[in-house]
Amino acid sequence: MTNTNETMSPEAIAEAEARTRHDLAALYRLIAHFRMTDLVDTHISARLPGTPDHFLINRYGVLFHEMQPGDLVKIDPSGKAVNASDASERVNAAGFTIHSAVHMARHDLACVIHTHTADGIAVSCMEEGLLPISQHALKFYGHLGYHDYEGIALDLDERDRLVASLGSHRAMILRNHGLLAAGRTIAEAFMNIYFLERACQAQVKALSGGRKLSLPSAAVCERTAAQFNREEGLAHAQMAWESALRLID
C-alpha cells in the first residue's frame, strides 16, 4: 500500500479502503499478540490511498486484540471524522496529534505505529538511547530519530517538532514516552516496530547483567544497517507479515 496523488476511481478507492481496514485491524491484533499494548492508550494508523490525507485510526476504547475493520475511524488532517456515521466516534487526541503530524508531512509512509511497552519506555529514558549492541538494534543504526518529551501530545504545535525529530527516518524514540515506527507498507511498519521493540528488550536485559558490553565497530554497524535497509527489504517484510498473520488466524 503506497500513497500517490494519482486519480483513482471511486470503486478503486472503496476497494483500497476495505483492504486497508482489513490489514490495519490485523496489525492491531498482531501488536496485541506480541504484548505491545497499553490498554486503550497507544494507536496505529494507516493512510487511505486516493484520498486527500485521510487516514484510519482506532476508535478510542476498543482493545487491540478485539479490533475489527469497522472499529477504525476515518479522519482528516484536522481530526474530524470523514463519514457521517463516524461523527460520534471518539479518537485519542494525543494519537491524532502524533499520527497526523507524520501522515501530513511524510506521504511516503503508509502506516504509523506508536507503543508504550516497558522496554521501549525504559530505553527512551536512557540518555544514550538505543545502543548498537544487537543485530536488531543495528537495523536502526543511523536511521533513528529522537524526540524530547513535551508532555502528553495534545498541543498541535508539537507536530512540526515531531516531524523535524523524525527527519527522513522510519523509526523514532519518543524520550520518556515510548516508540514510534512507520513504513511504506503496513507490513514494513510491523517489521520496524517488531525489530525496534526486540532491540529495546535486548538492551534492557544486557544492561541488567551489570557486565561490560561488547560493541561492534562503526564500520560493521554501518554495513549491517545498509544490509537491513536495501530495497528488497519490502519483499522480506511482506513475507514476514504473511507468516505473522497465521499467528492470529
Rank of each mutant, 00 (worst) to 15 (best):
S78N: 06
S78T: 12
K80S: 06
K80C: 06
K80Y: 04
V82Y: 01
N83C: 04
A84P: 01
A84M: 08
S85E: 11
S85R: 01
S85C: 07
D86K: 05
D86M: 11
D86Y: 05
A87P: 04
A87E: 10
S88H: 14
E89F: 13
V91I: 14
V91P: 04
A93V: 13
A93W: 04
A94S: 14
A94I: 15
A94D: 08
F96Q: 14
F96V: 10
F96M: 14
F96L: 15
F96Y: 07
F96R: 15
I98V: 15
I98Y: 02
H99P: 12
H99G: 05
S100I: 09
A101H: 04
V102K: 02
V102Q: 09
V102C: 11
H103C: 04
M104Q: 14
M104W: 13
M104Y: 10
M104S: 12
A105M: 10
A105Q: 06
R106C: 09
R106F: 03
R106V: 07
R106G: 07
R106M: 09
R106L: 07
H107G: 15
H107Y: 03
H107R: 15
D108I: 05
L109M: 13
L109T: 15
A110R: 10
A110G: 11
C111R: 07
C111Q: 06
V112I: 14
V112M: 09
V112A: 13
V112G: 01
V112E: 05
I113V: 15
I113Q: 02
H114V: 09
H114S: 13
T115I: 06
T115N: 12
T115D: 08
T115G: 11
T115Y: 12
H116N: 05
H116F: 06
T117G: 09
A118F: 06
D119G: 05
G120Y: 00
G120S: 04
I121F: 15
I121R: 11
I121G: 00
I121Y: 14
A122R: 05
V123D: 08
V123C: 07
V123R: 04
S124Q: 01
S124A: 04
C125P: 03
M126T: 07
M126S: 01
M126V: 10
M126D: 01
M126E: 04
E127A: 08
